[in-house]
Design a protein around this nucleic acid. Structure first.
Length: 340
DNA sequence: AAAACGGGGTG
DNA sequence: CACCCAGTTTT
C-alpha cells in the first residue's frame, strides 16, 4: 500500500519527532539501548538516562564487563528494572556468542533477553536499514483503526492480521523515516483520544470514515470479577465503637477496620464474647478491588454485655471521633461517617 | 479505579 | 497456543 506509507513519510517530515539523540546514530548498540529505554517510557524521561548510560557504558563490551549493580545504578529512576537486567545479560550474550558485535540476523536478535519481535525489527531498521515491520502498542492502534481490524489485538488471530498488514505496508525505501513515522503518529496523533483532524490518514482510515475511532482497537475482554460479600459489624457501647487491626499483609493490610462475619450468620456477637441487640440496618455498599468486588453489609449492634476478662488481640474500643482519626479503609470510613 | 504497556513465563 | 505476570504510567 504505497498510499499509506507515502502519506506517513510526508507527514513525518513536518510533524514527526526529529533530532532525538538516538536518531543521530546508526550504531546498533545505541539504537538498541534507546529502544529498550523507550519501552513503556516517554521520550522526555529517557533522554537524560540515555546520555548518562552511554557515557558510562559506551559500547557492548564495556556494558558486559560492568557489574549488575552499576548497571542498575544508571537505570535507577527509570523504572522497570527488568529491562536493565535483561540489557546487561544480553550484552554478555553478545560478547560470548557474537564477539561483542551486535548481530544483524533477526533470529539472533530476538534470542537476546528483553528483545521481542517488534523491538528487534525496530533496531534492525534503524541501525541496518533492514526492511522489517514493527508492531508495538502504538502501531497496533494505528493499523486496527486504519484498516478497521476488529477484535482484541492480544489474541493470536488478530495479532496475525496486524502483523500481516504491517508487513504488506512497508515502503520499498525509506524504512527508517517510515518506522519513525508510525511510532510518532501513534504516540502523538492516533492516541486513545486521537486528533483525527491532524491525521494524514484521515481520508483512508476505515475507523474514521465509519465513525468507529472510539471502538478500535477493541479492549481486552474483561472476565467478570468474582463477587464476594461480608458483613461488617458496627459494635457500639457507651458511645464507642469496636475496631480491630487487620493483619499486616493482604487486603487493607495494617489498617483499622470493623470486625467481619459471614452475611448469613445470626449470632455474630457471640463470636466476640459479647451480647447485645441489633439496631437499625445501614445501607449496603459495593467496593471494587483489582481482583474482586466486595458487597459489604453493615450490621449495627448496641452491645450490652462483655464477656468478663475478654481480651481481643488487636481489638480496641474507640470513640467515634477517635475512630474517624484512625487509618480506615474507605468503605469503613463511609460506614462510620453516617453514625457521627 | 482501571486500562495499557512489551516481554517473559506458565500450563 | 492462550493466558497471566510485574511494575509502572496514563486516563
Amino acid at each position: 500500500m504505497k498510499d499509506f506509507s507515502q502519506r506517513l513519510i510526508e507527514w513525518q517530515k513536518h510533524h514527526g519527532r526529529h533530532g532525538l539523540p538516538w536518531q543521530q546514530t546508526r550504531d546498533p548498540y545505541s539504537v538498541w539501548l534507546s529502544e529498550i529505554m523507550l519501552q513503556q517510557t516517554q521520550v522526555s524521561s529517557v533522554i537524560p538516562y540515555y546520555q548518562r548510560f552511554l557515557a558510562r557504558f559506551p559500547d557492548i563490551s564495556t556494558l558486559a564487563a560492568a557489574s549488575q549493580d552499576e548497571v542498575l545504578a544508571h537505570w535507577s529512576g527509570l523504572g522497570y528494572y527488568a529491562r536493565g537486567r535483561n540489557l546487561h545479560r544480553a550484552a554478555q550474550v553478545v560478547v560470548a556468542q557474537h564477539g561483542g558485535i551486535f548481530p544483524s540476523d533477526p533470529e539472533w536478535v530476538v534470542a537476546l533477553p528483553g528483545i521481542g519481535r517488534s523491538t528487534a525489527a525496530a533496531i534492525l531498521a534503524f541501525s541496518f536499514g533492514q526492511r522489517r515491520a514493527i508492531l508495538d502498542g502504538n502501531v497496533k492502534r494505528v493499523l486496527a483503526r486504519c484498516f478497521g481490524i476488529a477484535g482484541y489485538p492480544g489474541t493470536k488471530a488478530v495479532e496475525n492480521r496486524l502483523w500481516h498488514q504491517a508487513d504488506a505496508l512497508l515502503p520499498e525505501s525509506g524504512i527508517e523515516i517510515y518506522t519513525q513515522a508510525l511510532m510518532d503518529l501513534g504516540a502523538t496523533v492516533c492516541t486513545r483520544k486521537p486528533s483525527c483532524d491532524d491525521c494524514p490518514l484521515g481520508s483512508v482510515c476505515v475507523a474514521y470514515n465509519e465513525k468507529r475511532v472510539a471502538e478500535l482497537p477493541e479492549p481486552k475482554p474483561r472476565k467478570p470479577m468474582p463477587q464476594k460479600e461480608t458483613a461488617m459489624l458496627v459494635l457500639l457501647r457507651q458511645g464507642e465503637v469496636y475496631l480491630e487491626k487487620r493483619p499486616p499483609t493482604g487486603i487493607w493490610g495494617g489498617m483499622w477496620s470493623l470486625p467481619e462475619a459471614p452475611v448469613m450468620e445470626t449470632d455474630s456477637l457471640a463470636r466476640f464474647g459479647m451480647a447485645g441487640a441489633e439496631v437499625s440496618p445501614l445501607p449496603e455498599r459495593q467496593h471494587s478491588f483489582t481482583h474482586f468486588r466486595l458487597r459489604i453489609v453493615p450490621r449495627v449492634f448496641e452491645v450490652t454485655a462483655l464477656q468478663p476478662g475478654l481480651r481481643e488481640p488487636g481489638g480496641l474500643w474507640l470513640t467515634l471521633a477517635d475512630a474517624m482519626g484512625a487509618a480506615l479503609p474507605k468503605p469503613v470510613r463511609e460506614i462510620l461517617k453516617v453514625l457521627v
